[in-house]
Design a protein around this nucleic acid. Sequence first.
DNA 1: ACCCTGTAATAATTCGAATTAGCATCTTGA
DNA 2: TCAAGATGCTAATTCGAATTATTACAGGGT
Lengths: 335, 335
Amino acid sequence: MAKRLTQQDIARMAGVSQATVSLVLNNRTDSGVRIAEETRARVLEVIRRTGYVANPIARRLHDQRNRILGVFTYEAVFPSTRADFYQPFLEGIEEQAEEAGCDLLLFTSAKATSGKRRIFSDDSRIRLADGCVLLGRSIDRDDLAQLVKEAIPFVSVGRRDDAGGPVPHVGADYAAAVRDLVGRAVALGHRELAYVGAGTGAESSADRLRGFKQAVAAQRVKGTHVQFAGLGQLLDAGVTCVLSEEVSDGAALVLAARERGLSIPGDLSVLTLGAATRPAPDDVRLTGFRIPRREMGRRAVQALTEVLAHGTTPQELLACEFVEGTTLGHSTAQR
Amino acid sequence: MAKRLTQQDIARMAGVSQATVSLVLNNRTDSGVRIAEETRARVLEVIRRTGYVANPIARRLHDQRNRILGVFTYEAVFPSTRADFYQPFLEGIEEQAEEAGCDLLLFTSAKATSGKRRIFSDDSRIRLADGCVLLGRSIDRDDLAQLVKEAIPFVSVGRRDDAGGPVPHVGADYAAAVRDLVGRAVALGHRELAYVGAGTGAESSADRLRGFKQAVAAQRVKGTHVQFAGLGQLLDAGVTCVLSEEVSDGAALVLAARERGLSIPGDLSVLTLGAATRPAPDDVRLTGFRIPRREMGRRAVQALTEVLAHGTTPQELLACEFVEGTTLGHSTAQR
DNA sequence: ACCCTGTAATAATTCGAATTAGCATCTTGA
DNA sequence: TCAAGATGCTAATTCGAATTATTACAGGGT
């Protein structure tokens, strides 16, 4: 197995010292450092000939800056079942990383003894990267707190509550997006709305529900929250517009309505809030909003760059774009 | 910004030397190394209290190993236009990397000044990884030759011709797969076959055409090769069975036939050879074979492990699985 | 008192590159 | 001609952890 070349090797070949090679390599020309043009050329020639590249590990040991950005997820990213979810984020991350001249390190080995992935396992490799982007619907609180505590540069994709300190993140402004949807529904005459979904647990869920509650309060309309709900249940309760956290749940309501011969949005308006933890049928064009996944990925990498450069704690929420589907219409409630 | 703890810090706190901390941390109990139970406990307690984790960078520097596997592609892997192609490969690669306890480094920044990606750009980080997997339909010959020359541990996904030496690869056995298809066609009475596609350029194309030529020669039937061909052209020439390199080209033939009111496979059998450089309609169930993309990814990483361990040059071709579609039938040629 | 044998821990070195202080050597000006 | 300054390079140190060689000490036997 061919041993990797070191600066010492290059130095020997060029007949200079290791220090000189390092100076040439880094193109150091500051005062106090001078290398004769002739020597410089000789060293560069050897480097060119051998294709020598500095061992980034050693380099990183000395100063920091590997031009490696880590991407951590709690689950494998490539299996096609998850692909739809992660794809757009990764696309944005890759794009921006390329722009920043950084490579991406996927932490695929981060399996703790339990089998579940953890950031801080026995042999945490998180510090191989200059900084790290966290991806995933929910992130282990202890992991998050430790990241903050150890001042490891990272940015979360998706808003996160404080964890022993503010958590740098680039998220989507779900609260505003949901408020907007409620506003549109109310403008169409809806007075009895329902929020279907967890509304708790992950920050993304909580934000949606919060936006919902804010909006119905501000608009002085009736808004209820249920974790799960069947079509009949909703209609019996006099609900005219449903906001479904999960895309697939919303789609299921539409399909159920079709089977019963009900009209959507004639008899019931159905809005989706973009969460996609499960695959959804694609023949239902739900009205709702689009999560700017790709843009979030891009901005997260940009934010990480800022963290690395200035040690800041960026927090940003991106707007979601309204999606005109076919499932929102005038309220038909008889009053 | 809290400075990261070092073993030296732990040592001070526990009132021992840095070496002792290292020995305790690695649970070294081999002969020649002895730590009193009381001391060990004291050190572990400090470690527990502080949440100290060894700096992986320093560790790798010493071990001469990264446990990082590089993945190089000539184009971005995440954009959805390419996703269908790369996805299964990456899935296999990720799986096997996780099993090997390695992280994946995606070389996203390898843009040369020209704008095109090159492995050996100005500041190539290819050596950052322990080894590297190459992905892509065709790979720059010069890059390949340089990899071989510099004895960089790598494995290509897809067979590659020698480039200044044998190129380690894990490919698909296209020749055998095409021979099998020709055999099936001949068994159904076909005597005039056509191969439509480049048949040259990338090894994958050449292998397919080679398999075709071998098979028609062995079976003593007529086989022609054209780069492109319209439906009418083929029928006029008396061809009863077409093997289309590109999935989309094959699908196009089927659609053209439908429009003309022709029956497939009644009037013409159409086989596909699995190449997917362009998206294809998914409502055409072509007969052909499946490229074991995911398995190729897995095996490539395994092969890379072998390269790293023993410096071998593995070359392996995986079998393609026959796919029973609806476009192969008995020949109806009037003789 | 002396040597020997375990035992327990540490000093010193290593990995590869970056950096700083400093040593030669050569110019230049008075 | 000699000090002052510029020039060109190198020795030595640093980063953090792992490893090897070595030391220090206690107790037992003679």
